[in-house]
Each structure stands twice: as structure tokens, then as C-alpha cells.
């Protein structure tokens, strides 16, 4: 790890000013991803600006009936918050499915959105990786990729986004708010993560030097009946190999509203819009759920060793939507 300067910010504008346009400076939140990447040599900042003490750690109602979640709210506090648990239970579940209790107490919402892929080629600086060193190649495509992307990938990168939280946020139309050098701005989560294309090193729409200040969740009655289901290679404390955030509103046997987002299938949380369009207005039964999954997964382009993810996601969609419908009928 390279030597670095450390400064502590006390207000948002000051933090952004401190960072300035310096490409060698990083904001330090919980540090659970950044410090790890600094140890492995993936990140080598010359300066850290600590933002953990900024007054961004509140969860508050918004005038439109949604919620505003501060960027330095820890994952632990987010999942424990009664309004999150009541109104967006899948978000609480997604956060609880991530990492460990210790890491959730450190990791922040802003940092979680910006966490880097856990692809084993990305985290090992002795290996090529287009995301880390543009143009160096993607050994995962011909190598170990059983937990890599089936949707939205390119010949340049097949890594998946590791966040659970972001999957639930994607399902609920979250908006990311930031403060850039020229003032505040925002980006719907749907547009926040950039397509992979031939620039896998460019991951988000966050302007250079900008600081995420908060995330807003619009009101979504359908979210009150929602679930996050994560599949991983041990029962806990592991990244997903496939996950699903789902919300369903059924009346008189017909789907009124539905939200679906997939995790661990793409470079970003994958909002399943095509699936939602199949669901809404259709009879609430397993056939509809399977058709919805198929509509979304038609775009899947699995690699030789990750084709199972298509089946996995399809099965998760059918199982979780069936559960939500059954519970609604009770």
C-alpha cells in the first residue's frame, strides 16, 4: 500500500472541494471495499478524504411520501430501520443478505453503490483485467467465470456487480443524489451504472470528483409486499451467484403491479423491465411468472460455465412470485 495523505471533511461542499479534480484522491466511507482494494494494490490513492463524519447519516421521509437515505447511513442501520422494513422489506432483506454483521456496521450506502466487482481477475493485480487496466484483456471469458455475467456483458468484461442492496434499490426506482464541483445533481439508479461496452473501467454516471450525498426512494405501495432472495455457495457470508428482488401486487387473481430486479447476473443490478411488462395485467400464476422470466432472460448470453444462472434466475422468479402471491391471498 502506497503512502497517502488523510483529511477529514466536515461538510459536503468542503469534502468535494478537498477532493477537487485530483484523480489520486478518494473519499473514504466505511472503508470495507476501498481499504481492501488498497491492500491488494487495485487502488493506490495518494490522498483520502474521510467523509464518515459528514451529516449524511439520517433516514427521513420525503414530502412525496418516499424515503431519503443519507449516503453515510451504515448498512446495519439501514436494514434495522423500521420504515425500511415496513415499506421496502426487500431492501432490508437485501442488505441483511450481504457481507457480515461486522461489515454491515461499517459499510455505508454510498460506498455500497460504488463497490467494485469481486471478479478474481480484477482483484489480483498480477493478472490482466480490462476494468483495472483498460486494454489488458479479460481472462475470465476463457477462464474461471462460473459466477460471471449472463446479461449485458461484452467481449471486454463479464464481471458482475457484487451489491445486494443495489438490486433492491433498482427494483424500487431509487434515485442517486450527489454533489459535484458545480453543485448538486441526481441520477436514477437505472441510469447510474453505465453499460459495459468497450469501457468496463467506466462504471457509473457519477461526475468526476462528485460525492454521493443520499439516495431517495419514491413511494411504492407495491414494495410493502416484497422479498429479496439470494443464492450463494455457502449459507451466509458469501457473494451472490444469483439473486432476486421482487414485489408483487395481486388483486382478483390478476397482477396489478410488479417489480423485479436480478443480482449477480450483470455488471449492474438488473432491473427486469421486460418481465414486469409481461406480469402486469396477467393472471397471477406460475405460467405467467415463468413467461415473465423467459421474456427477460431471452437476452441472456451465458458463457460455457455459467449457463446455470439462466435456470437459477428463472426458478427464483417463479418461486418468489408464487410465495408473494400466496401470502397476499392469505
Amino acid at each position: 500500500m502506497r503512502e497517502f495523505d488523510y483529511q477529514r471533511a466536515s461538510d459536503v461542499a468542503g469534502a468535494v472541494a478537498l477532493l477537487g479534480a485530483d484523480p489520486d484522491t478518494r473519499f473514504l466511507g466505511g472503508g470495507t471495499n476501498l481499504v481492501d482494494l488498497m491492500k491488494s494494490g487495485v487502488e493506490r490513492p495518494a490522498r483520502l478524504v474521510d467523509i464518515r463524519e459528514l451529516p449524511l447519516d439520517e433516514i427521513e421521509p420525503t414530502p412525496d411520501g418516499g424515503l431519503r437515505i443519507g449516503a453515510t447511513v451504515t448498512n446495519g442501520d439501514l436494514a434495522a430501520h423500521p420504515e425500511i422494513r415496513r415499506r421496502y422489506p426487500a431492501l432490508a432483506q437485501a442488505v441483511l443478505a450481504g457481507a457480515s454483521g461486522q461489515l454491515r456496521n461499517m459499510a455505508t450506502v454510498g460506498g455500497n453503490l460504488l463497490q467494485r466487482t469481486r471478479c478474481g481477475y480484477f482483484t489480483d493485480v498480477t493478472k490482466p483485467c480490462n476494468k483495472r487496466v483498460p486494454g489488458s484483456g479479460c481472462p475470465a471469458i476463457e477462464g474461471e467465470h462460473h459466477n460471471h455475467a449472463i446479461l449485458g456483458a461484452s467481449g471486454h468484461c463479464v464481471a458482475v456487480h457484487p451489491s445486494d442492496m443495489a438490486v433492491a434499490l433498482a427494483a424500487f426506482d431509487a434515485v442517486v443524489h450527489f454533489h459535484a464541483a458545480d453543485g448538486p445533481g441526481q441520477s436514477p439508479l437505472a441510469d447510474f451504472y453505465l453499460p459495459v461496452g468497450d469501457t468496463p473501467h467506466r462504471e457509473t454516471a457519477l461526475p468526476p470528483g462528485a460525492l454521493i450525498t443520499h439516495v431517495t426512494l419514491p413511494p411504492a405501495p407495491v414494495a410493502a409486499r416484497s422479498r429479496y432472495r439470494k443464492v450463494r455457495e455457502r449459507a451466509s457470508y458469501a457473494f451472490a451467484i444469483g439473486s432476486l428482488a421482487a414485489a408483487l401486487d395481486v388483486r382478483d387473481g390478476v397482477v396489478q403491479d410488479a417489480r423485479l430486479a436480478f443480482g449477480a447476473v450483470a455488471s449492474r443490478p438488473w432491473r427486469a423491465g421486460a418481465a414486469e411488462r409481461v406480469l402486469i395485467g396477467a393472471p397471477a400464476d406460475a405460467g405467467t411468472y415463468a413467461a415473465a422470466a423467459d421474456a427477460e432472460l431471452a437476452a441472456a448470453r451465458p458463457l460455457p460455465h455459467n449457463g446455470y444462472k439462466v435456470e437459477l434466475i428463472r426458478n427464483l422468479v417463479v418461486a418468489v412470485l408464487s410465495e408473494l402471491a400466496e401470502e397476499a391471498a392469505r
Binding site: T123, D124, T126, R234, A238
Partner: peptide
């Protein structure tokens, strides 16, 4: 290709934890 491991850490090499 490289002859080395991929995911050479305890997040890549899973050993059973409490929940297992």
C-alpha cells in the same frame, strides 16, 4: 493461462461458516 489461483482469498475459497 496464468498457472495461478483465481479468487485466492477466503471470499473466493469458501470454508463452511456458522450458517452451514
Amino acid at each position: 493461462v496464468s498457472g495461478g489461483h483465481v479468487g485466492a482469498d477466503l471470499a473466493g475459497y469458501h470454508v463452511a461458516t456458522h450458517a452451514d
